[in-house]
Nucleic acid binder design. Structure first.
Length: 577
DNA sequence: GCCGTTTTCGGCCCGACTGTTTTCAGTCG
C-alpha cells in the first residue's frame, strides 16, 4: 500500500468514527495522522517495518497498532465494525459544501436520508425545512450545492501550480490598483508552491471604509462565474476555470499576521499557535496578543514569528515537517533561489520537437544571464518527436559547436542529447554518447511497467555510466497520468554509486522528480539538476516552477548541480569517469 | 488518539459567514 492509500484508510476511519459519535479529538488525531503520512517523503510501509514510523509527528502507538493490523490481516477490525453500523454512502454527504457532521447525522437520524440522491429528493420535495435549524433558504442552497458538487466532480479538483500562479498574479495586479488598497498578495498553498493548488487565497490590506468597495469589485471581475458568499471583510467566488478564490480584506496593522495565517499550512499554523499558547500568547489573523489583549505583532510576517520566539521561514517550508524545530534551534536551511541558477541542461530545438533554433535558445539564455546551456534534442527511438539518427546527431553536434564558437564566450553551449532509456534499460544511440558534453537519459515509452521491472530498467541505464542525469524520472503528467511505479531507494542508490544526477524537470505539468524524491536525493548526496525541458525560448522560464518544488524539498544551492560553474560541472563529470 | 522548555494527565487554533435564531450552532478554512 502506498502512502496515499494508507491515508485514505485513516481518513475513512476518522469519518466513520466521527459519525458514530466518537470524541472529536480522537477523530482529529486520525485525520492528522492521515495528513502526516500522505506528506511523508518515504514509504510509510517501510517505516512501519523499520520502526521509524513512531518518530513521525502525529503518528502514535494507536495508529501504528492499527497499521500493523492492516498489514497483517488486510483490514482494521475497528473500521469494519464501525462501518457495518452505518448506512453505506453516508460519509459522502459530508463532502457536500454546507453539510458537516451534525447535519449528516440529523438528516440520517430524523429523515432516514443516507445518500446524496435521497438528500436532493427531500430538499426538492421541501421536506427538510421543518427540521430544527433548517429553513427554506437552506433547502434552496442545498439543491444548488448538490448541482455544483456534481458539476465540479467531473473536473479535476486541484490545478497545476503554474495555472494557479498565472491566475493569482493577474488578480493581484487588478486588486492592487483599486482605491484604498495598501498591500495585496496571494497566500495559501500557492505561496507555499505546492505542485497543485485547490483554491486561491488573496489578501488585501485597506482601511475598513474601502473594504466594501474592494469586495464588490472583486465579485464583479469578469473571470468570476459564481458567488459563494460575501461579508464585511471576506468574499468567496468561483472563477471561470472552476477554481474557488477567497479574498480577505484586513487592516494594514494586521497584514503580516493575516499573510502568515492564510499561507498555512494548517498543520504549521496549529503547531505555531500551540507554541504561542504555551507562552501565554494568542495568535490570530489580526496579530499576536498577550494575555491583556495588547498587540505584540501584526503588520509584518517576520514580527509575528519573532513574537512567538521563532525566526521567519520561507513559505515553502511551512508544512510542519521539522521547520518549527529548525527555526527554534537556528538551523533553518538556506534555500536555493532563482538567481543561483547558472545554466539549463535540458532543452530542445527545431532539430527534434522544439520551436526555436540553437541560436535563439542561446540568445534567450544570455538574456536571463545563464553562463551555459546544454542542447539536448531527442534520440532516434522517439520518432514522434523527430528523434535524431546517429548521422543527424553528429551533424547537430557540429552545428552546436560552431554556434558555441560564434558566441565567443558570451555563453557556453554544451552539445548533448536526451537519449531514450529503452524498455530493457539499454540506451538509444548508445555508441554516440561518449562524444557528447552532456547526456540526459529519459524514459518515454512503456511507462506502465511493473515497479520492479521499471526499477531495473532505470538502474541498468544509470549503471551504464553513459548518462549524466536521469530526465523526468517518473514520467508523470499532472492531471493526465500518474508517474511510473519506482523503487526510489534503489534508483537513488544507483545514482549515488555511479555519480549520476537526477533531474527536477520544471515543465509545469511534470515537476518530476517530486519534492519527496528530491528530498530523498538530497539525503543520499545525489545532485539534483533543475531543468526547464524548454521546447521554445519562452519555456526557459519554467525553471521558476521547479525552484518552488526544490525549496519545498529543503534544497540549497549546494544540492543543485546547475548552480555550479561550467568548469565545476566538467570536473564533477570527469570525476565519475 | 497525540503530545510535553510549565505536563505522562489534561488539554487539544481561531475567527468569519450563514441561516437560523432573538443569542447562537454549524461549517469552513
Amino acid at each position: 500500500m502506498d502512502n496515499a492509500a494508507i491515508a485514505r484508510v485513516l481518513t475513512e476511519l476518522a469519518d466513520v468514527l466521527e459519525l458514530s459519535g466518537e470524541t472529536v479529538f480522537k477523530v482529529r488525531a486520525f485525520r492528522t495522522a492521515a495528513r502526516a503520512i500522505e506528506g511523508l517523503g518515504e514509504r510509510a510501509e517501510e517505516l512501519l517495518a523499520s520502526g521509524g514510523l513512531a518518530k513521525v509527528k502525529g503518528v502514535g502507538d494507536g495508529v501504528i497498532r492499527r497499521l500493523k493490523e492492516l498489514r497483517e490481516t488486510g483490514k482494521i477490525a475497528e473500521l469494519e465494525a464501525a462501518r457495518a453500523k452505518l448506512p453505506p454512502g453516508i460519509t459522502e454527504l459530508m463532502n457536500l459544501p454546507g453539510i458537516g457532521l451534525k447535519t449528516a447525522q440529523q438528516v440520517w437520524k430524523e429523515r432516514g436520508i443516507t445518500t446524496i440522491e435521497e438528500l436532493e429528493a427531500a430538499a426538492r420535495a421541501g421536506s427538510l425545512r421543518t427540521l430544527p435549524r433548517f429553513g427554506d433558504k437552506r433547502e434552496e442552497k442545498l439543491i444548488l450545492a448538490i448541482e455544483a458538487f456534481r458539476k465540479r466532480a467531473s473536473q479535476p479538483k486541484r490545478r497545476p501550480m503554474a495555472e494557479a500562479l498565472e491566475l493569482a498574479e493577474a488578480l493581484v495586479a487588478k486588486l492592487g490598483v483599486l482605491p484604498g488598497v495598501v498591500s495585496c498578495q496571494y497566500a495559501g498553498s500557492l505561496r507555499r508552491r505546492m505542485e497543485t493548488v485547490g483554491d486561491l487565497d488573496i489578501l488585501v490590506s485597506a482601511d475598513a471604509a474601502h473594504a466594501g468597495a474592494i469586495l464588490d469589485a472583486f465579485c464583479a471581475m469578469p473571470e468570476v462565474t459564481e458567488h459563494l458568499g460575501k461579508g464585511d471583510t471576506k468574499a468567496s467566488v468561483v472563477l471561470d476555470n472552476g477554481m474557488q478564490a477567497d479574498l480577505r480584506v484586513v487592516p494594514e496593522a494586521s497584514f503580516g499576521a493575516a499573510l502568515q495565517y492564510f499561507t498555512g499550512s494548517k498543520d504549521h499554523n496549529v503547531a505555531m499557535r500551540t507554541i504561542a499558547v504555551k507562552h501565554g500568547l494568542k495568535v490570530s489573523e489580526y496579530g499576536v496578543f498577550d494575555a491583556s489583549g495588547k498587540s505584540l505583532a501584526g503588520p509584518d510576517e517576520a514580527g509575528v514569528y519573532r513574537a512567538v520566539g521563532l525566526a521567519w521561514m520561507p513559505p515553502e517550508l511551512r508544512e510542519n515537517r521539522g521547520e518549527i524545530e529548525a527555526s527554534q534551534d537556528g538551523r533553518l536551511p538556506a534555500l536555493v533561489e532563482q538567481g543561483d541558477i547558472r545554466g539549463d541542461l535540458h532543452m530542445h530545438t527545431r532539430e527534434s520537437d522544439g520551436k526555436s533554433t540553437i541560436e535563439e535558445m542561446a540568445q534567450a539564455a544570455i538574456h536571463v544571464n545563464y553562463k551555459y546551456i546544454a542542447i539536448t534534442d531527442h534520440s532516434e527511438n522517439l520518432a514522434i518527436a523527430r528523434g535524431m539518427t546517429p548521422e543527424r546527431l553528429r551533424a547537430h553536434v557540429r552545428r552546436i559547436r560552431e554556434a558555441d564558437d560564434a558566441l565567443d564566450g558570451k555563453i557556453r553551449l554544451l552539445a548533448g542529447v536526451e537519449a531514450d532509456i529503452l524498455a530493457d534499460g539499454s540506451l538509444d544511440l548508445e555508441g554516440e554518447l561518449a562524444e557528447l558534453d552532456w547526456v540526459v537519459g529519459s524514459v518515454h515509452g512503456q511507462l506502465a511497467m511493473p515497479r520492479e521491472q521499471m526499477t531495473k530498467r532505470l538502474v541498468r541505464a544509470i549503471e551504464s555510466g553513459k548518462i549524466d542525469c536521469v530526465g523526468h524520472p517518473t514520467g508523470r503528467m499532472l492531471g493526465h497520468r500518474d508517474g511510473s511505479e519506482l523503487d526510489w531507494e534503489a534508483v537513488l542508490d544507483a545514482c549515488a554509486r555511479t555519480g549520476t544526477a537526477v533531474e527536477l524537470n520544471s515543465s509545469p505539468l511534470r515537476l518530476d522528480v517530486t519534492e519527496h524524491a528530491a528530498r530523498a536525493a538530497r539525503e543520499r548526496g545525489v545532485p539534483v539538476v533543475l531543468n526547464s525541458d524548454a521546447h521554445s525560448t519562452r519555456e526557459l522560464a519554467f525553471v521558476k516552477y521547479g525552484i518552488g518544488i526544490a525549496r519545498r524539498a529543503w534544497l540549497g544551492k549546494e544540492h543543485i548541480l546547475n548552480t555550479r560553474s561550467r568548469e565545476e560541472i566538467r570536473a564533477w563529470r570527469s570525476a565519475r569517469a
